[in-house]
Design a protein around this nucleic acid. Structure first.
Lengths: 327, 327
DNA sequence: CTGAAAGCGCTAACAG
DNA sequence: CTGTTAGCGCTTTCAG
């Protein structure tokens, strides 16, 4: 009995006698034998592993995306290696390199922004499928999966405008986030369409709780005429809500707050957060499915782009401004 | 120039001429050469990868733990493969098998409860370090990292008792969760130490938002004399808070609620959640460090156990019962 | 200090 | 249908 016979039996290849296979299977089971995947990967060139680079898994948005991706991977018999790159471009580049070295079958990443030109080219030349998350389809020819960010921004702006807000602030993340720029664009579009509204004030800070807290505090201190806050994500919104409470000017009575993401806990904040829902789990799943599919075909795959819909979820953090329109 | 010379240069092994190494490095850089890690793994037998099996990364507790583990892994030049096993023992067993097949250097897992005896033995015999998270050190000789769950339960019970609660309900997860059992034990210890208090009612449900919602609703419907809820984790507590609001009996006025974990968003719920803080990030980090360290030494490593401290974080979801002690 | 040779554990032609 | 023969791309003795 040769190793190749064993290999063929275990892999269910054609051209092997029933009895032989049965025998192999039986004895393998008895010995508790398990083929060494790394040896197999070396020869086949496929690892059944895909890399996931997000900025921080503690952000519930990414947790949701990662779960969707993992479920899809699991169904396809793949595993995921998770990398937290924060907003550190060095870390991001090192992770990409590392994943490439490990011969992952594909990479699903947050953004390719941290990579310089040659690094992006190397990634493209590696031949493995890469899909970017929530990035506007840029010059680079990687695939993308994104929520309809501009539409989401528009929905938020429209809702605020309908309530009577005319002067709103946009609490954004760091400058280079294309998706947040899209949301701002949508907001502006909605605002310019409403008579009497002025262009939003935009603030930038880390897109986390603390950042939201600081931006809201800054608005309170420096722009007393602002009546509504559009946070670029729910976590920022939570920070803002807390800041408003601590300043004795809680939402929605003194200030409306609207978020983006519709994280599970948005329904339990005080007050429950009005926000724009994006299909996080589905986005992760879709991205992973694109990778799996591209991996299955040989030859170069064309970049593909999927935009998933968003919707407004009204809860209790927004209300009409206290004294009509501002100023 | 032989491959072995290249290998030695790149790995910084001793016994190579400065000039040779420089030359190799230079030409490798120029060609953008990167050694194939899977080939290397095959021969060295080490993968610089460790498996992480949690029940669900969307649970903020695990997100935090995973982040701590990933940071520690990153510092040691390792990557993590993330698996969500839910509470499905089949899935858990398959993941363990898969990780073993891929020759991970170690496994950090939530629980070993889903594995049957032979599977546990196989895991132990594999020789790789395994550390269990938040499990009481059981008969199996795997390492563990856990918060001081019993102490946490005690702290919660003591706090409630001091406020004047005598009849409390414990909103737990599925039966086989050792850590939640420990928390209950602590709670009971605190309650039996306070005169007039009765044993807590304990309910079981999935340990998520929905489970919390349902358990709180059940308490309202069937145990009107209960004045305080101790949730086995914050997510359950959030579900309970929501249920109380929906029932028109919001915390803390009509019912006190105390959680466990001290998730970041506990400070933003309405009302902000009083809870027991456990050092999630540090737990993940500690667990990963144990694995890395055990991997570094050869030969069998002895199981090790670390218990990390907890503390009470008072916010606004607990108050004295409305009419003194219950009944 | 460097080259040659063996081999990690598997798969994939190619014969038989 | 099954055995034989080559590697996959690296590391590691062992000579030189």
């Amino acid at each position: 009995m040769d190793v190749s016979t064993v290999s063929r039996s275990l892999n269910g290849s054609y051209g092997i006698h029933r009895d032989t296979r049965e025998k192999v299977l039986a004895i393998a089971a008895r010995l508790n034998y398990r083929p060494n995947r790394v040896a197999r990967n070396l020869v086949t060139g496929r690892s059944h592993t895909v890399g996931l680079i997000v900025s921080d898994i503690r952000n519930p948005f990414f947790a949701e995306v990662v779960r969707g991706a993992e479920d899809a991977a699991c169904e396809a018999g793949c595993e995921i290696v998770l990398c937290n790159a924060d907003l550190d471009s060095g870390k991001q580049a090192r992770y990409v390199q590392s994943l490439l070295d490990k011969r992952v079958d594909g990479i699903l990443m947050n953004s390719v922004g941290g990579l310089d030109r040659p690094q992006q080219e190397q990634l493209a030349l590696s031949g493995i499928p890469v899909v970017l998350l929530n990035r506007p389809r840029s010059g680079s020819n990687f695939s993308t999966v994104t929520a309809d960010n501009q539409e989401g921004g528009y929905l938020a702006g429209e809702h605020l405008a309908k309530l009577g807000h005319r002067k709103v602030a946009y609490l954004s993340g760091p400058r280079d986030h294309g998706n947040m720029r899209e949301r701002a664009r949508g907001l502006i579009r909605a605002l310019t369409a409403t008579p009497g509204a002025v262009a939003p004030i935009v603030l930038r800070a880390p897109h986390n709780f603390r950042g939201g807290y600081e931006m809201a505090s800054a608005i309170l201190a420096r722009h007393p005429d602002v009546t509504a806050l559009f946070a670029a994500n729910d976590t920022i919104a939570f920070g803002a809500i807390r800041a408003l409470i601590d300043a004795g000017r809680p939402a929605p009575r003194h200030m409306s707050v609207i978020g983006f993401d519709n994280v599970e806990l948005a329904s339990v904040s005080g007050p429950p957060l009005t926000t724009v829902h994006q299909p996080k789990y589905e986005m992760g799943r879709a991205a992973m499915e694109m990778i799996i599919q591209a991996t299955a075909m040989q030859g170069p795959h064309l970049p593909e782009h999927r935009i998933l819909g968003v919707k407004l979820v009204e809860r209790e953090s927004c209300a009409a401004p206290r004294n009509g329109s501002a100023i």
